[in-house]
């Protein structure tokens, strides 16, 4: 007979209060995690969507990608030796549409590769977020540094960099706008270990993200909030179960006196903890997925199933640890003391 379940059934209000607190904290954590991930995507989807590999920039650039200039001879040699490799450049800029509205974009250009959109001279492929700003296929976009105009050839989904939609342009056009002849970066996919090239510094995709201005600070703040919430949840678990256990000390003593195993009392507490937590987390996960659907389009919110499962697992683990620590008093309960105190 499941004594733990019987207690939940009889003391619904008490367990609902505990469950609702876990729900509120976990829901907040899911939302913050979704925003954190959303901002991260918004800041660096262009890089995060690349396959595993290494990005190389000029050593003299001191980890500032837009100060990097890859020597053309070295670039030709590396691209010749590594068939999958590509050279690319990113610069923040503006395009102006037919109605003279300026749109902030991240211009991206690359040598021929499947990893980036390939566009012809005078063409541009932009992130689909610009659709919502009224840009259509066939529209002309201009830039005051560019002598001609860009014809919008198409859209790509969720390709952003430094919180701006990406605009893929041809290398010749890029060189004209920014008055440069070299590319900034090289990407070699599929490497386990970075190669060593004279004058180049290598970065894994993940490490390269930290060279994006504000990326680290933004992520650090959001991750800290997420982890604070996780830790606070763990403490809440411990405090609530501690309070519940204190109220039940007498009961535990009597149950021990009549022959209950200490481990059975722990199992009873774990069962209740897992039951409440799973329900609270289930509701949190469902609501946060629902939030992703109804959230305004401009709100960078991205809560993946993987992240939800990971958070759920962390919550259950931390709940288990919190409840178990608070349950140490169960082990200490002396049946005789409970009987003599006349509790229950």
């Amino acid at each position: 007979m499941n004594i733990a379940w019987k207690e939940i059934k009889k003391n619904k209000v008490r367990f609902m209060i505990l469950g609702s607190i876990i729900f509120l904290v976990s829901f907040l954590t899911f939302i913050i995690s979704g925003l954190s991930n959303g901002l991260s995507q918004d800041n660096a989807a262009l890089i995060k969507d690349l396959p595993d590999g290494h990005i190389y920039m000029n050593s003299d650039a001191e980890e500032t990608y837009n100060a990097s200039k890859i020597d053309e001879n070295l670039q030709s040699k590396i691209l010749g030796d590594n068939k999958e490799a590509t050279a690319f450049s990113i610069q923040m800029g503006f395009v102006t549409d037919n109605s003279d509205t300026q749109h902030s974009v991240a211009f991206v250009t690359s040598t021929g590769s499947n990893l980036f959109e390939n566009v012809g001279k005078g063409e541009v492929i932009v992130d689909s977020s610009l659709k919502e700003e009224g840009i259509k296929v066939g529209d002309k976009l201009t830039n005051n540094q560019f002598s001609g105009a860009f014809i919008v050839k198409g859209f790509v989904d969720k390709k952003t960099f430094s919180h701006a939609p990406v605009a893929y342009i041809n290398t010749e056009n890029y060189k004209e706008i920014y008055r440069v002849s070299e590319m900034q970066l090289l990407f070699i996919p599929g490497e386990d270990k970075a190669q060593s090239f004279s004058g180049l510094q290598s970065f894994s995709n993940k490490k390269f993200l930290n060279t994006i201005p504000s990326y680290s600070a933004e992520q650090l703040s959001l991750n800290m909030i997420t982890w604070f919430l996780v830790v606070i949840s763990g403490m809440l678990f411990a405090i609530f179960f501690y309070m519940m256990n204190v109220q039940k000390i007498g009961l535990y003593g009597i149950l021990k006196a009549i022959g209950f195993k200490t481990i059975s009392l722990f199992v009873m507490m774990w069962y209740q903890m897992i039951f409440i937590t799973l329900i609270a987390l289930g509701i949190s996960a469902a609501l946060s997925q629902g939030f992703a659907v109804i959230a305004p389009k401009g709100l960078p919110f991205d809560l993946t199933t993987e992240a939800s499962i990971q958070l759920t697992f962390i919550f259950i683990t931390i709940g288990f640890v919190g409840a178990t620590l608070s349950g140490i008093q169960i082990k200490k309960v002396e049946p005789l003391q409970a009987i003599q105190q006349g509790v229950v």
Binding site: E7, K10, L251, I254, K256, G259, G342, V344
Partner: peptide
């Protein structure tokens, strides 16, 4: 000792010490 208490001994205390969230038959 716990096993003996559970299987071979019965207890009646001054107070009834019943489990408050269980029915009489439970």
């Amino acid at each position: 000792i716990r096993k003996i208490r559970a299987r071979q001994f019965g207890f009646i205390f001054q107070s009834s010490h019943l489990v408050p969230f269980l029915t009489v038959q439970d």
